Structures are given as structure tokens and as C-alpha cells.
Lab assay of single mutants.
Amino acid sequence: SEEELEEFAKEVLRRGITIIVNGIRITEVEIFVKVLREILEKR
């Protein structure tokens, strides 16, 4: 749901943790923004 997305976004921003994806360091915020864009483009 959109509320869950908002909560996830807030949690990500609070933690600001960097994770490893395919050997490249990407912040969770960047991943969230990318996923959010993909979701919005599909609408």
C-alpha cells in the first residue's frame, strides 16, 4: 500500500544504510527512488 511505501521511505531515510548490490555500493534511498520511479512509470 502507499502507506507502507511511505513508512519504508521514512525508515530508509532514518537509517541511511549502504548495502552492496552486485558488488556496487548503493544506498537504500537510491534503490527506493529507483523502485518508486518504476512503479510510477507502470501506472
Rank of each mutant, 00 (worst) to 15 (best):
S1D: 07
S1Q: 08
S1Y: 15
S1C: 15
S1H: 11
S1V: 12
S1L: 14
E2C: 15
E2G: 11
E2S: 13
E2V: 13
E2L: 15
E2Q: 13
E3V: 10
E3T: 13
E3N: 14
E3Y: 14
E3I: 12
E3R: 14
E3L: 13
E4H: 12
E4S: 12
E4F: 14
E4T: 14
E4Q: 12
L5P: 00
L5C: 15
L5Y: 05
L5R: 00
L5W: 11
L5V: 04
L5Q: 02
L5A: 01
L5F: 08
L5S: 01
E6Y: 15
E6N: 09
E6W: 15
E6Q: 11
E6V: 15
E7P: 00
E7Y: 09
E7H: 09
E7S: 09
E7A: 13
F8Y: 11
F8W: 15
F8Q: 01
F8S: 02
F8A: 04
F8D: 02
A9L: 15
A9S: 03
A9H: 02
A9W: 15
A9K: 00
A9N: 01
K10T: 03
K10M: 05
K10R: 12
K10H: 03
K10S: 02
K10P: 00
K10E: 07
K10Q: 03
E11T: 03
E11H: 00
E11K: 08
E11I: 05
E11A: 08
E11W: 02
V12W: 01
V12Q: 07
V12T: 07
V12A: 09
V12N: 01
V12H: 02
V12E: 04
L13R: 01
L13V: 06
L13H: 02
L13E: 02
L13W: 01
L13G: 02
L13F: 08
L13D: 00
R14Q: 10
R14D: 08
R14W: 08
R14P: 01
R14V: 06
R14Y: 01
R15I: 08
R15T: 12
R15Y: 07
R15G: 09
R15N: 10
R15W: 08
R15C: 15
R15A: 10
G16F: 15
G16R: 05
G16N: 08
G16P: 03
G16D: 05
G16I: 15
G16A: 12
G16V: 14
I17K: 05
I17N: 04
I17C: 15
I17V: 13
I17T: 08
I17G: 12
I17H: 07
I17A: 10
T18F: 05
T18G: 07
T18D: 08
T18H: 13
T18I: 15
I19Q: 00
I19F: 00
I19H: 00
I19Y: 00
I19M: 02
I19K: 00
I20M: 07
I20D: 03
I20E: 07
I20C: 12
I20N: 02
I20G: 01
V21N: 02
V21C: 14
N22F: 01
N22K: 09
N22I: 08
N22E: 07
G23P: 05
G23N: 08
G23A: 12
G23R: 05
I24M: 09
I24R: 07
I24A: 06
I24W: 04
R25T: 10
R25C: 09
R25G: 06
R25P: 14
R25I: 12
R25L: 14
R25V: 11
R25K: 11
R25A: 11
I26H: 03
I26G: 01
I26A: 04
I26C: 12
T27R: 08
T27W: 10
T27G: 06
T27D: 08
T27S: 13
T27N: 09
T27A: 07
E28A: 11
E28R: 06
E28H: 08
E28T: 14
E28K: 06
V29I: 12
V29K: 03
V29Y: 10
V29W: 14
V29N: 03
E30V: 07
E30H: 10
E30M: 09
E30Q: 05
E30Y: 03
E30C: 09
E30N: 09
E30F: 05
E30P: 08
E30R: 04
I31R: 04
I31N: 09
I31P: 05
I31H: 13
I31F: 10
I31S: 12
I31T: 07
I31K: 07
F32L: 15
F32Q: 00
F32M: 14
F32Y: 06
F32D: 01
V33P: 00
V33R: 01
V33S: 03
V33I: 14
K34Y: 00
K34G: 06
K34F: 02
K34L: 02
K34T: 06
K34Q: 11
K34C: 13
V35T: 05
V35R: 01
V35P: 00
V35A: 09
V35Q: 02
L36R: 00
L36W: 02
L36F: 01
L36S: 01
L36E: 03
L36K: 00
L36T: 03
L36P: 01
L36C: 11
R37A: 06
R37G: 05
R37T: 09
R37E: 04
R37H: 09
R37Y: 04
R37Q: 09
E38A: 04
E38C: 15
I39Y: 12
I39L: 14
I39V: 04
I39W: 14
I39E: 06
I39K: 02
I39Q: 05
I39P: 00
I39G: 06
I39M: 13
I39N: 02
L40M: 10
L40T: 04
L40Q: 04
L40P: 03
L40H: 05
E41Q: 13
E41W: 01
E41L: 09
E41H: 09
E41K: 10
E41T: 06
E41C: 15
K42D: 10
K42F: 06
K42G: 12
K42P: 06
K42L: 09
R43P: 08
R43A: 14
R43D: 09
R43V: 14
R43F: 14
R43E: 11
R43G: 09
R43N: 10
R43S: 10
